[in-house]
Amino acid sequence: MRHIISVLLENEPGALSRVVGLFSQRNYNIDSLTVAPTEDQSLSRLTVTTSGDDARIEQITKHLNKLVDVVKLVDLTEGAHIERELMLIKVKASGAQRAEIARTVDIFRGQIVDLTATVFTIQLTGAGEKLDAFIAALGESVVLEVARTGVSGIARGDKTLAL
């Protein structure tokens, strides 16, 4: 099963490489990874999506917790949560295609953030599946370049991942 694990990490040099190294060292896979500073200067928040059966996910979270740089973590998929990813995508857009693509962008609530005579650059946010669906709707033949941030997530309701 797919899991989204969010980690509060000491904002120290080398901390990120310890997390990434752990995954390769123990043969866990990383489907996506995002990391950025939080409102607290001393902490980064890292979100990793991975997959495996319950025993494997338990080992992953235990080993992550053992890393001295990991302050706290949560497996968001254990409860209700919100998951988002941002995508910037460049597509071929000329002639009659342009209106068609613009309509698709509207349907998916994306935005055209840049354009030339032959290319649109589109921004789209949502869960991973929505981004996949958008690419499928456009058709692979028009896609020139895709830049996705990877999944970020947060629990629903009052629950927080904080110190």
Partner: peptide, 11 residues
Amino acid sequence: IDPAAISKTVT
């Protein structure tokens, strides 16, 4: 003492 040692190879 190590939670990760528990149920790693044998449940």
